[in-house]
């Protein structure tokens, strides 16, 4: 559909513009439409082909570099590893995947990330609100909050490895106030939350900036009016600010989800190596281990295909949500 769009809109724009200029004299309109007719008669085939030629490079890039490898990868996932290299094994890889408690754990962790998502969006949202409401020191906070966003995951992971070590500073502080040490990265019930927490800390600066941009479009008189009417701060946030920012919030939801599913690898690699007890595996880490460490490329392809399908479903759901919200707004 988008391919067919440009020529009609280009043609219809011209009469429109000349129509608008009509009061200044008829001659202008006549000459304009005459040029239009000549073009339509003289080069109809070029006009019809031009859009296809123009989009061809983009389509070729997508097909050759994206879709074709995707198909190859999916096809590869139906072949075997090691002794059975190259032979078709049907759904064996997929059966093995879903029998592997490690992969099931990785999928469970994806579910956990989806559940944590509202918290990960609420934190930058709330902090941006405070900055917008000009709490004391808001200028300082604005730059401080953004600072971690410029650090690479490996550096962030290394810093938190030191802070969260069993004999590290955080546990020393906890010990000083009488709370027993927590093995932040060594306890399977805690480690995933620790890593997600660090990920949120490291990335919420971006979301904060997006929220602040959203606030720039907010009508200040609405907040003012609510204040005059005696609304409390929670009421202002819930009834005035949140509804006005619904599009921004949805955008942050989508980008945060994508960030969680695709860019946690560096942190996992540095902070936990998927452990303890395999409790912090995510599908992409599992793919890397199978392909690089255990020499199972075909099994890794199957896992990649599963991850692709998950991302497809999540992405489509989010797009439909966005569309609906866009129509309402």
């Amino acid at each position: 559909m988008p391919i067919a769009n440009p020529p009609p809109s280009a043609r219809s724009a011209e009469p429109g513009r000349t129509g608008g200029a009509a009061p200044s004299g008829q001659g202008v309109r006549r000459s304009g439409s005459g040029r239009d007719q000549r073009r339509a008669v003289g080069r109809p085939r070029a006009d019809r082909l031009a859009p296809y030629v123009l989009v061809a490079p983009a389509v070729l890039v997508i097909v050759v570099l994206r879709l074709w490898p995707l198909l190859l990868g999916a096809n590869f996932s139906f072949t075997g590893d090691g002794q059975r290299n190259g032979t078709t094994v049907g759904l064996d890889n997929y059966l093995e995947l879903f029998r592997d408690p490690l992969f099931r754990g990785a999928l469970r962790n994806v579910g956990l990330l989806v559940l944590i998502l509202p918290v990960a969006v609420a934190i930058p949202g709330l902090l941006a609100t405070f900055i917008h409401l000009r709490v004391p020191g808001h200028r300082l906070y604005r730059s401080v909050y953004f600072f971690p966003a410029v650090l690479s995951p490996v550096i962030v992971g290394a810093i938190f490895n030191l802070l969260l070590a069993f004999d590290g500073p955080l546990n020393a502080v906890l010990g000083a106030v009488g709370i027993g040490p927590v093995d932040w990265l060594g306890d399977p019930d805690v480690a995933m939350f620790t890593v997600v927490g660090v990920h949120v800390w490291a990335t919420f600066g971006m979301a904060l900036v997006v929220f602040l941009a959203g606030f720039a479009t907010l009508d200040a008189t609405l907040v003012e009016a609510a204040r005059v009417d005696g609304a409390s701060l929670p009421q202002i946030i819930w009834h005035v600010i949140a509804p006005s920012l619904i599009r921004t919030i949805q955008f942050v939801f989508v980008t945060t989800m994508i960030g969680m599913l695709t860019s946690m690898f560096g942190l996992l690699y540095v902070m936990t190596s998927g452990g303890p007890e395999g409790s912090t595996y995510l599908p992409e880490y599992y793919i890397w281990v199978q392909q690089g460490q255990l020499n199972r490329p075909a099994l890794a392809s199957a896992a990649s295909t599963v991850l692709f399908l998950i991302m497809l479903v999540v992405g489509l759901l989010q797009i439909s949500l966005l569309r609906r919200a866009g129509r309402e707004a």
Binding site: L164, F166, D183, W184, L185, G186, A191
Partner: peptide, 12 residues
């Protein structure tokens, strides 16, 4: 040592 499961062998 405490926290062996969160201590890296190389080189902690």
């Amino acid at each position: 040592n405490d926290g062996a499961n969160s201590t890296a062998m190389f080189n902690d």
